[in-house]
Design a protein around this nucleic acid. Structure first.
Lengths: 190, 190
DNA sequence: CGATTTTTTGAATCATATCAACGTACGTGG
DNA sequence: CCACGTACGTTGATATGATTCAAAAAATCG
């Protein structure tokens, strides 16, 4: 059972047959470090499942500042979901941090999967539900905690991210400046 | 067409018949100011659509601080979605800010609606999708902006909230202290 | 009306941002 | 494969925005 199969199976029990039917709708793809998976302004044609590597999404605000929204390690999905689902222009960029192997699904295939494989529709609904719930909980925790607490929580829950993702991306994800993260790390090491 | 019907119709075109079938699964309810719709620690048995009034959700962190998560005016849905969908204990409280008329749906009825009225399953999927997308965009905006900018954005997008919801709830929703919001408001009025 | 909650104000403090400079790591072309 | 240029991380000094503690003024509730 490959990563994707395993990952789907965690949420819904899916038969070999259903999975293979779904798999036929997907496309394995390689993406090189720093290459773009989605460009802000385009319509997001695909969502991606990360088999190996890391991708991240961010947006640029009116003042030209970059804000990291999501960091997707192995077994995570990433895209500009709003754009993908609505066919409107993406406001996020999605880019590879490492050379990565991803499995991508087009809008068309996504819809076909939802129509013809009930388990997959259920899977995607759950995926979005969970994403929403996590995001809601993330909001609630952002506010309560200091930058240091947020960083420590990230280290604890995703040690991989801290090891593999450049520090200034992590700073942006935490909502602080790289200089501040550097100082925070200093207080932790001591 | 009542509020709920109109609100559903904005996302999916629903026939009179389908809507009535759905309506039969719901229950109109009154909730008095300050009464709880959901108590932290219980399992959320219902989700609510606000016909008139205002409800809000919040959680209490480890340090005993209250954090407002959502403020639901007319035509919004509110609950502890995670708890409702998973049957685990709610971490949010949901409480009425004004005497409110709400339409509630039990887990059982929700599932029945999803099973028997395809349009309603689609509606709920879209509802959650939108909630997720908004929440993702909210995160991205939290970080970029100062407390003042966040407040101004709220005033602009939801002037009703500012008029009808006590200021210290709004402060909490914005992630700042009531004293700070008071000072921010002073700088705006001048 | 009095009691309680909410909002405002003041002064001191703290966390993070900003501006600037420097050392280090990294990858890219010769 | 090395050297160079660029990107990244660290550090210092200072500025700014928000918090904290405290208390008074204003609004709301029974």
């Amino acid at each position: 059972m490959n990563q994707l199969h395993k990952s789907i199976n965690e949420k819904v029990e899916i038969s070999e047959q259903d999975f293979n039917e779904f798999l036929a709708l997907t496309k394995p793809t390689n993406i090189k470090k720093n290459d773009f998976f989605i460009n802000e302004g385009d319509v997001a044609k695909y969502i991606a499942f990360v088999n190996t590597g890391v991708l991240y999404s961010y947006y640029i605000d009116d003042k030209g500042n970059k804000h990291v929204i999501q960091i997707a390690l192995e077994n995570y999905w990433i895209s500009d979901l709003f754009s993908f689902l609505s066919n409107e222009e993406a406001i996020f960029n999605v880019q590879a941090i490492e050379n990565s192997e991803i499995t991508i699904i087009s809008k068309q295939s996504f819809e076909k999967a939802c129509d013809t494989i009930p388990k997959m529709e259920r899977f995607f609904r759950l995926l979005i539900q969970n994403a929403y719930i996590n995001s809601q909980r993330r909001i609630s925790k952002i506010y309560g905690a200091s930058a240091k607490e947020r960083y420590l929580k990230l280290v604890q829950s995703h040690p991989q991210i801290v090891q593999r993702v450049p520090q200034h991306y992590i700073a942006s994800y935490l909502g602080i400046k790289p200089q501040s993260l550097s100082r925070i790390r200093k207080t932790i090491l001591e």
